[in-house]
Design a protein around this nucleic acid. Structure first.
Lengths: 209, 209, 209, 209
DNA sequence: GGATAATCGAGACGGTACGTCGCGTCTTCAT
DNA sequence: ATGAAGACGCGACGTACCGTCTCGATTATCC
C-alpha cells in the first residue's frame, strides 16, 4: 500500500516488467532516513538531498518512488504509524463517553509528540487538493474520526443518544476542539479538557439530557 | 501595533534613536508587495527577492524589518486584515445563537478565500514558539475566539446560559469544529453546518435545555 | 593542463570518478564568458553572476570548477593565451640581442593591451600564496623569463657571453625593467627603450665587452 | 598634504568657512583605522564600513575627505611612510655601488613587509590613470628612483660612470629587477642578489669597464 | 548463455532563493 | 554647516536544495 502504486494496478495483469526490479531495500532506507530527519529537524529538514544521502541512495531513486519531497515526508509519516489497530474490542463495552475519552486522549498524546506536530504542520501546509494530501489527512485524522462514528453508532443502538442526530456535526464537535487546541496551542490538552469537552459536547445529545 | 515594536512599549523612554529613521514608505511598500505576491502565487510565492523587487526596495531593507520570509508574509497578512472592527454593537442585541452564527459564517467566508488558506498554511508552517507566530495565531484565530467569549458572557448575564460553564471549553466547542472543517475540508462549511453546529453545541448549555 | 587537475597526476591510477562527469562544455562556456567580460568591462566586470548568466550556466557550476571569481578570471586569461608557441626556431639563429629584442617587444605589446593590463592587475591583486596565483604568474611572466634563459644559454654556448654569469640575475636584469615600466608607466615602452635596455644590460656581460 | 586638498587652496585666502569646521581629529582617526585594517586584513580589508566603524566616524565623513575606498587606503599608506628622509648625507661620500646597495636593500626590506606587499598590490591593481594613483606610485616607487638618479649624477660627476649614459634606462635597470622580484617572488631578495644585481648592471657602464 | 533493459549509486547540471556584506548616497538629530 | 549615526537602493557574494541528466555498474528477464 504505497503512495504511488495502487494495489489494484499491480494485482495480476502486470507483465513482470523487464529490467532490474526496484529495490525495496532502497525504499525502506529512504523512508527510514526521512523519518529520522523529520524527528531530528522537523518537516523542513526532510530535504531530498539529506534523505538520499542518509539513505545511501541516489536522488533519482527517491524520485522514482515519490514525486517530490512532500510526498516522501508524508509517506514516511504514514508508514511510521500504521492504522492504529482500530479500537480494541474490549473498549466497546464501556460507555460512549469512556470510550471516546480513551481514544481522544490517545490522539492528543500522539499529536502532542514532536512527530505529531510534524503531522499537523504538514496537514495544514500542504495543498489540500492533491490525492496524496487527502490520503494523508485521511490516514491521520479522518480515520480516527470514523472510529468515533462507529462508537457513536453503537451508542445510538444502545439508546444512549437521541435519534435525529447529525453524526457528521457531532463528530466535528468532538474532534474539532481537539485539533483546534493541538494546532493553536492556546490551552492545555489534558485529561481534564477531554473530560469537560465530552461532557459539554454530549450534554444536549443524550436521551435523558 | 507594528510587527516589530509596539510603540506603546517605548512610548516616552525611547531616546529617539540616532541616525536616519527607517522609512515607513519602504515598510508599507514591502507589505503591499508581499500581499500581492501572496494573492497571486500563494505563500510560496512570497520570496524575499520577489518582495524586494516588487516593492522597489533592497533586500537588506526587508531584512532590517523582518528576520525571514515567514515573518514578512505574516506581517503582510496581519496588516491586510485589521482587527476586524470587532462586532458591530447592533448585533449584540440579538440572541446568542444568531450573533455567533453571523460571526462564524464571517470567519468561514474569510478562511474559505485564497488568502484565508494562506493564513491557515502559515499557522501550520511557522515555528509555533516564536513571538511573531503567536501574534499571528492570536490575530487571526484567537482574537475571534475572544469575540465569542464576549458574546457568551453577555448571554450568561442575560440568563441564556446556565452557570458553571467552562467558557474555554465552550469556545473551543464552537470554533474548533469550524477550523476543523476549514483545515480538513472533509465536509462543506455552509450555513446549514453553522446552524447545526450551534444547535448541538449549545444544546446542553442553556438554562432551559 | 587544466587549472584544477593535471591529467598527468592521475594518469592511470585514477579510478574513473563515479557519478556524472563534469561538463567540459560548461567549463569552456564559463571561460569564454569570463574572457568576454574581462575584455568589455575589465577585471572588476568578471563577477560570478555575470559569468554564469552569460555562459548559460548555474552559479554552483562555476564554483564547482573554481573557488572564487579571481580563480575564474585567471583561468580565463590563462586559457586565452596559450604557451605562446615558444619561440620560432628561425629566431634562434640570430644574435642574442636581436632575439631578445623581438621577444621583449612582443611582451611589451601583449602587456600594453587592455587584456595585458588585466593580467597585471590580477597578478597584483591575488593572494600570492595560492597555487593558482603561482601558476598564473608562471604562465604569464616567468615562462617568458624561461624563454630568455634558453636564449642566454645558447648565447653562452656560442661564446657570446662570458662564463660565470648568474643567469637568474641576468634574466631579472632584462625582464625586470620591462615589467617595471609596464606597471609604473613612468616612461614609454617603445623599441628605443628595448634596444637601449639590452645594450646597457648586456654591456658588461659579453666576452669582448 | 592630503590627496583631495591642495595646500595652496587653504593657504590664507580661505574665508573661514561658516558652520562647524571639519575635524582633523576625524581625519587622523580614519587614516589610523585604515592603516590598522590594512595591516591586519590586507588591502581588501580596508572597507569603508570597517574604517568608519573603527574610527568612530560616520561614513559620510570619510567620503567628505576621500572619494572612495582606494583613495582612503592609499592616503593611509602614504601618510604612514613619510618621504623617507631622503638619504643621509653621510652615505653620499661612499662609492656609487655602496650607496645604491644600501638604498636598495632598504627598499627591499620595506616592501618585503606585509605593508609593503599591500603597497605593491595597490600599485598594480589601481587604475593607472587617476591622479591619486600616480601620486601613489610617485610616493612609493618613483621617489626612490629619483634618489637613485641623484646618486648616479654624483657618480657621473665623480667620473665613475662613462658619459652618454641614458639615465632613465639605467635607473630602470637598477630598480626594475628589484620590484620584479618583489612582485613575482620567484627568487629571494637578499643582500647577495642586490650585490650581484649592482655588479652586473653597472658592469658595462663604468669608465674602466 | 548472451543480449537487452531497467534500476542502482553517484554526482554534476541549470536554476532559484537564501541571507550577508559592502558600496556610495541620503536623511535625521545634535553640535 | 558639519558631526555621528545609520537606513537606503543596489548588486554581488557564496551556499543550499530543487528536480533532471548522465555516467558505469548491477541485476533481472527474454531470446
Amino acid at each position: 500500500m504505497t503512495t504511488t502504486v495502487k494495489p489494484a494496478d499491480a494485482e495480476e495483469a502486470r507483465p513482470r516488467a523487464r529490467g532490474r526490479p526496484r529495490s525495496l531495500a532502497s525504499r525502506d532506507a529512504i523512508l527510514k532516513a526521512a523519518r529520522e530527519l523529520m524527528d531530528q529537524l522537523g518537516p523542513s529538514g526532510v530535504t531530498m538531498e539529506a534523505v538520499a544521502a542518509r539513505a545511501g541512495v541516489g536522488k533519482p531513486t527517491v524520485y522514482r518512488w515519490w514525486p517530490d519531497r512532500h510526498a516522501v515526508a508524508m509517506a514516511a509519516l504514514m508508514e511510521a504509524q500504521h492504522p492504529a489497530a482500530a479500537l480494541p474490542t474490549s473498549k466497546r463495552t464501556r460507555t460512549l463517553q469512556a470510550a471516546l475519552a480513551q481514544q481522544m486522549q490517545g490522539i492528543a498524546d500522539t499529536f502532542g509528540s514532536p512527530r505529531g506536530r510534524s503531522v499537523a504542520s504538514m496537514i495544514a501546509a500542504s495543498d489540500p487538493n492533491t490525492e496524496l494530501s487527502k490520503a494523508f489527512r485521511n490516514h491521520f485524522v479522518l480515520a480516527r474520526r470514523e472510529e468515533g462514528r462507529v462508537l457513536l453508532q453503537e451508542a445510538l443502538q444502545r439508546g444512549e443518544l437521541r435519534e435525529g442526530l447529525d453524526l457528521d456535526v457531532t463528530l466535528d464537535l468532538l474532534y474539532g476542539p481537539l485539533f483546534f487546541r493541538l494546532l493553536l496551542g492556546h490551552a492545555p490538552l489534558d485529561a481534564a479538557f477531554v473530560k469537560q469537552l465530552l461532557t459539554q459536547a454530549l450534554a444536549g445529545l443524550r436521551i435523558a439530557g
